[in-house]
Each structure stands twice: as structure tokens, then as C-alpha cells.
Amino acid sequence: MNAETQNSARDHTNNPAPDHTNDPAHDPGYNFAYLDEQTKRMIRRGLLKALAIPGYQVPFGSREMPLPYGWGTGGIQVTASVIGADDTLKVIDQGADDTTNAVSIRKFFRRVTGVKTTEKTAEATVIQTRHRIPEAPLREGQILVYQVPIPEPLRWLERRESESRKMHAYAEYGAMHVQLYESIARFGRITTTYDYPVKVADRYLMSPSPTPKFDNPKMHMNPAIQLFGAGREKRLYAVPPYTRVESLAFEDHPFEVQEWDDACALCGDDKSFLDEVVVDDAGTRMFMCSDSDHCRDRRAAGHRGGAEGAAAEALAAMTGGTDDGSNKDRAEDWAKDREAAQ
């Protein structure tokens, strides 16, 4: 079956896909955003339900995607269902645009939608993320799509879906605080550092996905739409704009986020989430912003961190985002070398 007939076959429903044939970058072998229109509609219906019941997990007929489960198939299906030809897409993993999986997902969407992509948080209308919320505040009209591996915050207490669904239905969340209690009793503090459970709109307990708890406060009363997709577990959930999102805690052990003794070696920020980099064999550490766009913005505005000379260059290359072509050159050299060796 060639690509042409495959595509027309996929659109055998009475509702043909919007015509995107003019998008130069859109691979005509696939329907816009890969999924067929019926599936996108099914997912959008699920998302509407999720938005209507903030924090509630909506089961959905997750499709088998050409990328592996656990690698963002839920987020990809959500993005595919909400994205339009006029959207500008940003994809980040660990806060950065240039991590391998982010690159791979962005490439996928460029191929199947031809939409404009960006690394600038402010320019994006749809941001798909894994493990971070951008440092720059989001605004109305933006959609943040989270990739979710395990949507059930109660899974570690009650592994049975049939039981945890009841716990949600009856708002029986006492056991969740037991976990926090245990950690204070043992370590003197709450030791959950990521995927830190939240209560949404004072009702449903929700997993924020494995973002660091540093990002939890950003979810609260956020003007953007926050959508969550778990492909393998076949669940959607959402936080509508301006919704209360409260991190679980005790009155005398309030929720607190990570702090660093260091600042970003490149832009000097000591308020953003920092990644630790081992820079030599002796184990010398440096810290830099996990959000590469945020770091670039600050540097453009003249902020500087402690790194100098070669170290600064090397670090900047890591967070540069845009490919300066040096990798491509290296790849060509490598290919030539191998050819010669054969």
C-alpha cells in the first residue's frame, strides 16, 4: 500500500482532515498531526471531559504510536489532537530543547504537521514537556502538554486500579498523607522530590508527572491550559487555567521547593532549577539552568555566571539549543573515516 492510498484510506470517515496540503514541510503521506481525525476528536472529547473535572483521570483509547510507550506517546497524542496549522510548537525534555527525545519528538511533528517550531517559550502556543515546566511564566492562550508515565498518584500505595479508582471517587486520600508522615518521621522532612502529589481544585489528587517539586507552584492558578497524556496507561487529565493546585503538606511541615547553594555558571541565575554537570575526570561540578531558553534569554540580557573561557563555551554549547552545524561536520568526518576503514 503506498503512502497516497494509505492516507486516503485513513480518512475514510465522513469528516475529512483540514486541508494542509500547502504546508511545505508537512509529509503528505500522513494525515495532519499523524492521527486520523476521528481519533483526534475522540481525544479532544476526553480532554474536554478532563478540563471539566480538573485532576480527574479520563480513560481513553490510546493508539499505538510509531514512538515507544514511555517515550511520550501520551503527550504526543494530546499535542496531535490540539495542534493546528497556525500553532507554534516547542518541545522540551528536562527543560531543554536539545535533549535527544525532545529533538526526536519535534522532528516527528515537523514532519507530520509542518508547523512552525520554536525554542522560545514566549513564542510557543503549544509546549510539549517532559519533566519540567518552563521558568518563564506562561500566559493565556498557551497550552502546556505533559508527558506522563504513571498517571495514578495512589499507585505506590494501592497498585490495584479497581481500588484506587474508588479511593478517588470517595476522596479517600488519608493514605497519601501517611506517606508524607512516614517520611517526616524517618528523615525529619518530606523526602518526595519529584512527582510530588497535588490536590486540584480542592478535589482530585493528581500526579504532576515526574516534574521536580520545584515546578509545583507554577501549576497553581496558571493562566495556560495544562493537559496531561499517559499513552501506555491510557489516561488523560487536565488543569484548566486559573485553577487551584495545592501540593500536599502538613501545617507544621509546609511544602517547600529545592534550593541550590550555587548559581548558574552561565547566566548567574540562582532562582531557576539547576542541572549539575561533571566537567572533568576529577569530578569538578558546575551548575547551569535546566531551562535552556531561560538561560539564553538571561545571557542575551547581559547576565553572566561564574564560568569563563573554554568552560563557558563548552557549557554554552550544551545549552545552545540551536545546532550550529558542528555536529553535522563531525558526523560527516566520522562517516568518511569509517568508509576509509572498510
Binding site: 528536562q94 535527544t100 519533566h131 521536580p212 542541572d275
Partner: peptide, 18 residues
């Protein structure tokens, strides 16, 4: 297979937190 192998994707934000 997907979920077991996703562990090789970057997790350094979570690891940093730990």
C-alpha cells in the same frame, strides 16, 4: 519494552532533585 527502556532517556532533572 517501551517503559523499561524509557529509563535510558534523560532523567537528570529528577536525579538532580534526589
Amino acid at each position: 519494552s517501551g517503559f523499561v527502556q524509557h529509563l535510558k532517556l534523560p532523567h537528570y532533572v529528577d536525579f538532580q532533585s534526589e
